[in-house]
Design a protein around this nucleic acid. Structure first.
Length: 287
DNA sequence: ACTATATCCTGTATGC
DNA sequence: TGCATACAGGATATAG
């Protein structure tokens, strides 16, 4: 569930309190949370103490917390990962998998993750951009993304446009919720073959995605339950602004037609059958 | 190079 | 009431 806006809310929360703080101890309570730290949990615990955090960074849904020495702690929240900043004597929540102590008297950094799809690892030399993220494309808020270039690369794909939006090696940060919202906003059916769309139409979809994620960020992200919260444990409010996602059977806010939900890649797509028509089911691609 | 699918996981909701 | 099943879905390994 955490997509770009939710991860950015977390990044900002960490940015306000981590820089300048020095780790004094690391404890791994569940080894799965550091499975991408290939040297193992004990090595992870040994390598962090003594390092001082600088400003947290983000690309798409990945976070990294650089240290002053040029290495970085990389994190992905997966489905249900949370960073919490809690006083050392605060109760430890269930599913707390990693705890960092600091040399100062401030709060601990705790990684909590019910479904354990998320995780942490140390990336040597990863302060600027962890090498493990080299295959992750820039997101729509990075300045070096040229929408025209991106639209042309999307247009070369034969998959449905939603599948392409979810491919983090094409453009990062978009997950199932914002893909459905962007396509609803742009009036594009999720299964529309990317190579059947004009670049102008692809750019409208990208702009819709950027817009809906910006609005979600302004509202603190999307929360359906306590699985996504910021570093203080509070929820965002964007779920009440969703137009399509999770609204099967409810009237389309634009035309009133009942929204549909269809199976899609082990999950669901939500769309309006009237506003988001599949045009030209097969055959010519002249547009 | 591209495309699609199975897999990991657990709390909640639903069906019988 | 209890048990079983479906569902939520990130990234990635793997197969085609």
């Amino acid at each position: 569930m955490p997509e770009l806006p939710e991860v950015e809310v977390v990044r900002r929360g960490l940015a306000s309190s981590l820089p300048g703080r020095t780790v004094s101890a690391a404890r791994v309570r569940h080894p799965r949370a550091v499975r991408r730290h290939l040297a193992g949990p004990a090595d992870f615990e040994t390598r962090l103490p003594g390092r001082t955090f600088v400003a947290p960074r983000r690309r798409g849904k990945f976070l990294w917390l650089p240290f002053g020495d040029g290495d970085a702690l990389v994190a992905h929240l997966g489905m249900s990962g949370q960073f919490r900043l809690d006083e050392p004597d605060a109760p430890v929540l269930p599913h707390t998998h990693v705890v960092l102590d600091f040399a100062d008297a401030g709060p601990q950094l705790r990684f909590v993750d019910q479904r354990t799809f998320g995780g942490l690892w140390l990336s040597p030399g990863g302060a600027e951009l962890p090498s493990e993220l080299a295959h992750i494309a820039p997101d729509l808020f990075e300045e070096d993304v040229d929408p025209a270039v991106l639209a042309r690369s999307i247009q070369r794909r034969r998959s449905g446009i939603k599948r392409v939006l979810l491919d983090q090696t094409v453009v990062s940060g978009i997950g199932n919720i914002y893909a459905d919202e962007a396509l609803w906003l742009a009036g594009v059916h999720p299964e529309t073959p990317a190579d059947s769309m004009t670049t102008a139409r692809i750019r409208r979809v990208l702009e819709a995605a950027r817009q809906v994620m910006a609005e979600a960020l302004a509202q603190g992200g999307t929360s359906f339950d306590r699985l996504y919260v910021n570093v203080n444990g509070s929820s965002g409010y964007f779920s009440r602004s969703l137009n399509a996602y999770g609204r099967e059977g409810l009237p389309c806010p634009r035309c009133g037609t009942p929204l549909r939900r269809v199976a899609f890649a082990n999950r669901s797509s939500h769309f309006c059958p009237r506003c988001q028509r599949l045009r030209r089911p097969l055959g010519s691609r002249a547009e």
